[in-house]
Design a protein around this nucleic acid. Structure first.
Lengths: 100, 100
DNA sequence: ACTGTCAATAACAAATGTGTTATCATATTG
DNA sequence: CAATATGATAACACATTTGTTATTGACAGT
């Protein structure tokens, strides 16, 4: 009953039902890695990056130690002076991390 | 004194100081577009996507009408059943939006 | 008309991230 | 030792998003 046609397919396709958490964790690991690497590569301290990005040092420290998940605004503010941004990509092409 | 060497350069390099807001807006436009397109392409209603993603329908509606900026957790939850994810890319390769 | 589904929206509580200010332990340097 | 800079962290107020519940107007099917 019920007009659950194509919907049922998605509900039964377990490969799509809940791996969002895994995605998020992978993303955060990638994020933290690139953040720290880029920051140190540029010889910036957390306080200096705080000035450049407009995000306070405690917030940066919390992110780098994975004690919080950044909001999108914060993410762009921090990534920008580090030379990164984020973009939306199809899952099929499985995060092509090694950019460039 | 003071080890503020390369730091001064960044502070003076205005091209890097504050375009984060622009980045965020571009990202959100890209996001909303792909979200709605992918959802409708799969014939999913907001309620169905809510069930698939674990994000409630009002939250999805708020995002699609740009009344709120999603948190990263929410972003992954919604993008995942739609076949997308987000990744960190160098700014140099200027958001290669036209995916696919 | 009635029913059902849709997206949009309202209002409030709950959760989480951030700003702010200050401190801490650890290195490093004079 | 004293001074400085670093990253980590605490505590609180504040801002924003999300959950929850319910409603609305539009539209389609019966």
């Amino acid at each position: 009953m019920k007009q659950v046609k194509t919907f049922a397919e998605y509900m039964n396709d377990e490969t799509r039902v809940m791996p969002a958490e895994k995605e998020k964790i992978n993303f955060e690991i990638d994020l933290i890695g690139k953040m720290i690497e880029a920051r140190e590569e540029k010889g910036l301290s957390q306080r200096q990056l705080a000035e450049l990005s407009g995000v306070k040092q405690p917030a940066i420290a919390r992110l780098e130690s994975m004690r919080s998940t950044p909001q999108i605004d914060t993410l762009f503010k921090i990534l920008n002076p580090l030379g990164y941004t984020i973009s939306i990509v199809p899952l099929s092409s499985e995060n092509k991390a090694a950019g460039q």
